[in-house]
Protein backbone atom coordinates (compact mmCIF):
# COMPACT_ATOMS: atom_id res chain seq x y z
CA UNK A 1 0.00 0.00 0.00
CA UNK A 2 1.09 3.54 -0.70
CA UNK A 3 0.07 6.32 1.68
CA UNK A 4 0.26 9.99 0.79
CA UNK A 5 -0.11 12.38 3.72
CA UNK A 6 -0.68 16.14 3.37
CA UNK A 7 1.51 16.41 0.31
CA UNK A 8 2.27 19.92 -0.92
CA UNK A 9 4.20 20.86 -4.01
CA UNK A 10 4.87 24.24 -5.60
CA UNK A 11 6.80 25.56 -8.58
CA UNK A 12 8.20 29.09 -8.30
CA UNK A 13 5.85 29.92 -5.40
CA UNK A 14 2.78 28.66 -7.31
CA UNK A 15 1.07 25.80 -5.46
CA UNK A 16 0.38 22.87 -7.75
CA UNK A 17 -0.59 20.32 -5.11
CA UNK A 18 -2.28 21.30 -1.87
CA UNK A 19 -2.64 18.98 1.14
CA UNK A 20 -3.13 15.79 -0.83
CA UNK A 21 -3.91 12.86 1.43
CA UNK A 22 -4.84 9.49 -0.03
CA UNK A 23 -4.17 5.72 0.00
CA UNK A 24 -3.43 3.46 -2.95
CA UNK A 25 -4.45 -0.15 -2.25
CA UNK A 26 -2.59 -3.33 -3.15
CA UNK A 27 -3.93 -5.51 -5.98
CA UNK A 28 -6.12 -2.69 -7.26
CA UNK A 29 -5.97 -0.28 -10.18
CA UNK A 30 -5.81 3.09 -8.43
CA UNK A 31 -6.59 5.89 -10.84
CA UNK A 32 -5.65 9.55 -10.53
CA UNK A 33 -7.89 11.58 -12.77
CA UNK A 34 -8.31 15.27 -13.46
CA UNK A 35 -8.24 17.94 -16.11
CA UNK A 36 -5.04 18.84 -17.94
CA UNK A 37 -2.95 21.00 -15.63
CA UNK A 38 -4.77 19.84 -12.50
CA UNK A 39 -1.55 18.43 -11.02
CA UNK A 40 -2.02 14.69 -11.50
CA UNK A 41 1.29 14.17 -13.32
CA UNK A 42 3.07 16.21 -10.65
CA UNK A 43 1.44 13.99 -8.00
CA UNK A 44 2.58 10.80 -9.73
CA UNK A 45 6.13 12.12 -10.22
CA UNK A 46 6.21 13.28 -6.60
CA UNK A 47 5.16 9.84 -5.38
CA UNK A 48 7.99 8.11 -7.26
CA UNK A 49 10.48 10.79 -6.21
CA UNK A 50 11.18 12.30 -9.59
CA UNK A 51 10.03 15.60 -8.10
CA UNK A 52 10.94 16.73 -4.60
CA UNK A 53 7.92 17.72 -2.56
CA UNK A 54 7.70 20.84 -0.38
CA UNK A 55 6.05 19.11 2.58
CA UNK A 56 4.12 15.98 3.47
CA UNK A 57 4.90 12.28 3.53
CA UNK A 58 4.87 9.37 1.09
CA UNK A 59 4.95 5.92 2.67
CA UNK A 60 5.54 2.61 0.93
CA UNK A 61 4.35 -0.20 3.21
CA UNK A 62 4.91 2.14 6.12
CA UNK A 63 8.43 3.18 5.05
CA UNK A 64 8.78 6.95 4.76
CA UNK A 65 10.09 7.52 1.24
CA UNK A 66 10.40 11.28 1.68
CA UNK A 67 12.93 10.94 4.49
CA UNK A 68 15.11 8.44 2.64
CA UNK A 69 18.52 9.36 1.27
CA UNK A 70 19.61 8.67 -2.33
CA UNK A 71 20.91 5.15 -1.62
CA UNK A 72 17.80 4.13 0.34
CA UNK A 73 15.54 5.49 -2.39
CA UNK A 74 17.49 3.54 -4.98
CA UNK A 75 16.78 0.35 -3.02
CA UNK A 76 13.04 0.96 -2.83
CA UNK A 77 12.89 2.06 -6.46
CA UNK A 78 13.98 -1.42 -7.48
CA UNK A 79 10.47 -2.45 -6.44
CA UNK A 80 9.00 0.13 -8.85
CA UNK A 81 7.87 -0.40 -12.40
CA UNK A 82 6.87 2.63 -14.38
CA UNK A 83 5.15 3.12 -17.69
CA UNK A 84 5.91 6.57 -19.05
CA UNK A 85 3.62 8.55 -21.32
CA UNK A 86 5.90 8.19 -24.35
CA UNK A 87 7.15 4.76 -23.33
CA UNK A 88 10.66 6.09 -22.53
CA UNK A 89 12.24 3.06 -24.18
CA UNK A 90 15.98 3.35 -24.73
CA UNK A 91 16.38 4.22 -28.42
CA UNK A 92 19.79 2.63 -28.82
CA UNK A 93 18.65 -0.75 -27.47
CA UNK A 94 16.48 -3.45 -29.02
CA UNK A 95 13.23 -4.60 -27.43
CA UNK A 96 15.09 -7.54 -25.84
CA UNK A 97 17.84 -5.29 -24.48
CA UNK A 98 15.28 -2.80 -23.18
CA UNK A 99 13.44 -5.48 -21.23
CA UNK A 100 16.53 -7.30 -19.99
CA UNK A 101 18.22 -4.02 -19.00
CA UNK A 102 17.20 -4.32 -15.35
CA UNK A 103 18.11 -8.00 -15.26
CA UNK A 104 21.66 -7.15 -16.43
CA UNK A 105 21.97 -4.61 -13.65
CA UNK A 106 20.36 -6.24 -10.67
CA UNK A 107 20.42 -10.00 -11.15
CA UNK A 108 23.05 -12.63 -11.76
CA UNK A 109 20.81 -14.55 -14.19
CA UNK A 110 22.40 -16.53 -16.98
CA UNK A 111 21.74 -15.59 -20.59
CA UNK A 112 19.24 -18.43 -20.89
CA UNK A 113 17.37 -17.40 -17.76
CA UNK A 114 17.18 -13.83 -18.99
CA UNK A 115 15.84 -14.97 -22.36
CA UNK A 116 13.21 -17.02 -20.59
CA UNK A 117 12.17 -14.13 -18.38
CA UNK A 118 11.98 -11.67 -21.30
CA UNK A 119 9.94 -14.18 -23.30
CA UNK A 120 7.53 -14.60 -20.37
CA UNK A 121 7.06 -10.84 -20.00
CA UNK A 122 6.50 -10.40 -23.72
CA UNK A 123 3.91 -13.19 -23.68
CA UNK A 124 2.18 -11.47 -20.79
CA UNK A 125 1.76 -8.34 -22.92
CA UNK A 126 0.90 -10.35 -26.06
CA UNK A 127 3.99 -9.44 -28.10
CA UNK A 128 5.71 -11.90 -30.39
CA UNK A 129 8.75 -11.78 -32.69
CA UNK A 130 9.79 -8.27 -31.75
CA UNK A 131 12.85 -8.89 -29.59
CA UNK A 132 15.28 -7.86 -32.35
CA UNK A 133 13.44 -4.63 -33.24
CA UNK A 134 14.41 -1.13 -32.12
CA UNK A 135 11.80 1.21 -30.52
CA UNK A 136 11.71 3.32 -33.70
CA UNK A 137 10.47 0.26 -35.57
CA UNK A 138 7.49 -0.30 -33.24
CA UNK A 139 3.94 1.06 -33.41
CA UNK A 140 2.55 3.17 -30.54
CA UNK A 141 0.70 0.23 -29.01
CA UNK A 142 3.72 -2.06 -29.32
CA UNK A 143 5.90 0.56 -27.62
CA UNK A 144 3.47 0.74 -24.69
CA UNK A 145 3.39 -3.03 -24.40
CA UNK A 146 7.18 -3.21 -24.51
CA UNK A 147 7.31 -0.52 -21.84
CA UNK A 148 4.88 -2.55 -19.69
CA UNK A 149 7.01 -5.66 -20.21
CA UNK A 150 10.08 -3.70 -19.12
CA UNK A 151 8.20 -2.34 -16.10
CA UNK A 152 7.20 -5.79 -14.85
CA UNK A 153 10.38 -7.73 -15.66
CA UNK A 154 11.70 -7.41 -12.10
CA UNK A 155 8.40 -8.46 -10.47
CA UNK A 156 7.70 -5.00 -9.08
CA UNK A 157 5.59 -4.37 -6.01
CA UNK A 158 4.37 -1.05 -7.42
CA UNK A 159 3.42 -0.17 -10.97
CA UNK A 160 3.04 3.48 -11.95
CA UNK A 161 1.49 4.41 -15.28
CA UNK A 162 1.54 7.94 -16.64
CA UNK A 163 -1.20 8.36 -19.27
CA UNK A 164 -0.87 4.74 -20.44
CA UNK A 165 -3.16 5.11 -23.43
CA UNK A 166 -2.41 8.60 -24.65
CA UNK A 167 -1.97 8.68 -28.41
CA UNK A 168 -3.57 5.27 -28.89
CA UNK A 169 -6.75 4.40 -30.77
CA UNK A 170 -9.72 3.42 -28.54
CA UNK A 171 -9.39 -0.29 -29.23
CA UNK A 172 -5.66 -0.43 -28.45
CA UNK A 173 -6.24 1.82 -25.44
CA UNK A 174 -8.79 -0.66 -24.06
CA UNK A 175 -6.36 -3.55 -24.65
CA UNK A 176 -3.62 -1.69 -22.76
CA UNK A 177 -6.05 -0.85 -19.92
CA UNK A 178 -7.16 -4.46 -19.58
CA UNK A 179 -3.55 -5.59 -19.74
CA UNK A 180 -2.61 -3.33 -16.84
CA UNK A 181 -5.63 -4.52 -14.88
CA UNK A 182 -4.79 -8.17 -15.53
CA UNK A 183 -1.15 -7.71 -14.53
CA UNK A 184 -2.24 -5.89 -11.36
CA UNK A 185 -4.46 -8.82 -10.36
CA UNK A 186 -2.12 -11.61 -11.47
CA UNK A 187 0.99 -10.16 -9.84
CA UNK A 188 -0.86 -8.66 -6.85
CA UNK A 189 0.85 -5.30 -7.20
CA UNK A 190 -0.16 -1.76 -6.26
CA UNK A 191 -0.91 0.05 -9.48
CA UNK A 192 -1.29 3.80 -9.74
CA UNK A 193 -2.52 5.12 -13.06
CA UNK A 194 -2.61 8.74 -14.05
CA UNK A 195 -5.17 9.33 -16.79
CA UNK A 196 -7.79 11.65 -18.15
CA UNK A 197 -9.33 8.96 -20.32
CA UNK A 198 -12.88 8.35 -19.10
CA UNK A 199 -13.02 4.95 -20.81
CA UNK A 200 -10.09 3.83 -18.63
CA UNK A 201 -11.86 5.10 -15.53
CA UNK A 202 -15.03 3.23 -16.30
CA UNK A 203 -13.15 0.13 -17.51
CA UNK A 204 -10.54 -0.50 -14.82
CA UNK A 205 -10.89 2.11 -12.05
CA UNK A 206 -11.07 0.18 -8.78
CA UNK A 207 -10.26 3.29 -6.78
CA UNK A 208 -10.51 6.73 -8.31
CA UNK A 209 -8.91 9.92 -7.01
CA UNK A 210 -10.13 13.10 -8.67
CA UNK A 211 -7.66 15.99 -8.51
CA UNK A 212 -9.08 19.45 -9.07
CA UNK A 213 -7.00 22.62 -8.79
CA UNK A 214 -4.26 20.65 -7.09
CA UNK A 215 -6.51 19.27 -4.37
CA UNK A 216 -7.98 15.91 -3.50
CA UNK A 217 -11.49 16.80 -4.68
CA UNK A 218 -13.18 13.42 -4.64
CA UNK A 219 -12.34 9.76 -3.96
CA UNK A 220 -14.34 6.62 -4.57
CA UNK A 221 -14.91 3.65 -6.82
CA UNK A 222 -15.91 3.82 -10.48
CA UNK A 223 -19.45 2.79 -9.48
CA UNK A 224 -19.64 5.66 -7.01
CA UNK A 225 -18.90 8.14 -9.78
CA UNK A 226 -22.41 7.51 -11.13
CA UNK A 227 -24.03 8.36 -7.83
CA UNK A 228 -21.75 11.24 -6.95
CA UNK A 229 -23.20 14.68 -6.65
CA UNK A 230 -19.79 16.32 -6.97
CA UNK A 231 -20.27 19.01 -9.60
CA UNK A 232 -16.63 19.28 -10.78
CA UNK A 233 -16.32 15.50 -11.01
CA UNK A 234 -19.53 15.23 -13.01
CA UNK A 235 -18.43 18.07 -15.31
CA UNK A 236 -15.15 16.26 -15.92
CA UNK A 237 -16.39 12.69 -16.31
CA UNK A 238 -19.62 13.42 -18.15
CA UNK A 239 -18.24 16.13 -20.39
CA UNK A 240 -19.09 14.66 -23.79
CA UNK A 241 -22.61 14.60 -25.22
CA UNK A 242 -22.64 10.79 -25.51
CA UNK A 243 -21.70 10.28 -21.86
CA UNK A 244 -24.09 13.04 -20.78
CA UNK A 245 -26.87 10.83 -22.10
CA UNK A 246 -25.76 8.16 -19.59
CA UNK A 247 -25.99 10.65 -16.76
CA UNK A 248 -27.56 14.08 -17.22
CA UNK A 249 -25.91 16.88 -15.18
CA UNK A 250 -26.65 17.07 -11.45
CA UNK A 251 -28.41 13.73 -11.33
CA UNK A 252 -27.44 10.39 -9.91
CA UNK A 253 -28.12 7.03 -11.50
Amino acid sequence: MIEVNTLNKSFNCVWVLKDITTRFSRGKANLIIGRSGSGKSVLLKSIVGLLEIDSGEILFEGQNFTRMNFAERKKIRRKFGMLFQGGALFDSLTVYENISFNLDFFTSMTKKEKQKRVKYCLELVNLKNVTHLYPSELSGGMKKRTAIARAIVMNPSYLFCDEPNSGLDPETATIIDNLIKRITLELGITTVINTHDINSVLEIGDNVLFIHEGQNWWEGTKEEIFTSGNEELNDFVFATEIIKRIKPPNTSI
Binding site: R77, R78, M82, F84, A88
Partner: peptide, 18 residues
Protein backbone atom coordinates in the same frame (compact mmCIF):
# COMPACT_ATOMS: atom_id res chain seq x y z
CA UNK B 1 19.24 16.03 -23.87
CA UNK B 2 17.01 13.80 -25.97
CA UNK B 3 17.09 11.13 -23.27
CA UNK B 4 16.07 13.73 -20.73
CA UNK B 5 13.13 15.21 -22.66
CA UNK B 6 11.84 11.75 -23.62
CA UNK B 7 11.94 10.66 -19.95
CA UNK B 8 14.58 7.98 -20.58
CA UNK B 9 16.70 9.42 -17.76
CA UNK B 10 13.66 9.35 -15.46
CA UNK B 11 13.14 5.71 -16.48
CA UNK B 12 16.69 4.88 -15.36
CA UNK B 13 16.14 6.64 -12.03
CA UNK B 14 12.89 4.74 -11.46
CA UNK B 15 14.73 1.47 -12.07
CA UNK B 16 17.02 2.37 -9.18
CA UNK B 17 19.99 3.08 -11.42
CA UNK B 18 22.25 6.09 -10.86
Amino acid sequence: GTMSVTEQIDALEIMGIN
